[in-house]
Design a protein around this nucleic acid. Sequence first.
DNA 1: GAGAGGTATAGCATTGATGCTATGAGCTGG
DNA 2: CCAGCTCATAGCATCAATGCTATACCTCTC
Lengths: 90, 90
Amino acid sequence: MRERRLAEPGAVEAYDAARLAFELGRSVRELRERRGWSQAQLARESGMTQSAVARFEAGGTVPTLPVLERLAAALDVTLRVGFEARGEAA
Amino acid sequence: MRERRLAEPGAVEAYDAARLAFELGRSVRELRERRGWSQAQLARESGMTQSAVARFEAGGTVPTLPVLERLAAALDVTLRVGFEARGEAA
DNA sequence: GAGAGGTATAGCATTGATGCTATGAGCTGG
DNA sequence: CCAGCTCATAGCATCAATGCTATACCTCTC
């Protein structure tokens, strides 16, 4: 079929992903500190290592959904992922 | 520091991830069909290939956030990812 | 039957996130 | 000063998602 991609994978999407990673990291750090947990404690509870938690909280990588789910479970919150119509508020 | 992981990476998390993948795939298929688009068209608009779209819609893989963002942009919807307190409704 | 469009699937290469270990910097309390 | 804790970072191995190409299957139309 010889499809041609119109969107370049390294443009706006990369920026959005980085921003999302940053905000998710901030959220987790906030939830973690609210519980008075160290990175090592959260890592233990979520099946990660302290280095991975640090990397994630700093926004150093774009997290995967399995990781987000494990973090949510450890922090006793619910992970919400979905689409909504443009303009709809939370 | 010698941390010990308590949660096994292949247990409940895997199930949740698969379920999330399945539901996200269903959402995208619904949004795509509502627009009357073929997989190839959506692929073109979102910078993917038809095979990747098919794989994703079938729930064959757990999508990454950059991919979800590109799909959302192509479908003109907003991707929402975040944590919320347990029990809070949408 | 041939052709075209839409979808599913396969195989392989690439890329990136994570696991893992180790270490450094900062800070506090002894 | 030293010990301990916390967080940040580095290097490497592994794994999984995606890109890419090709192909098979189905349905419709001619």
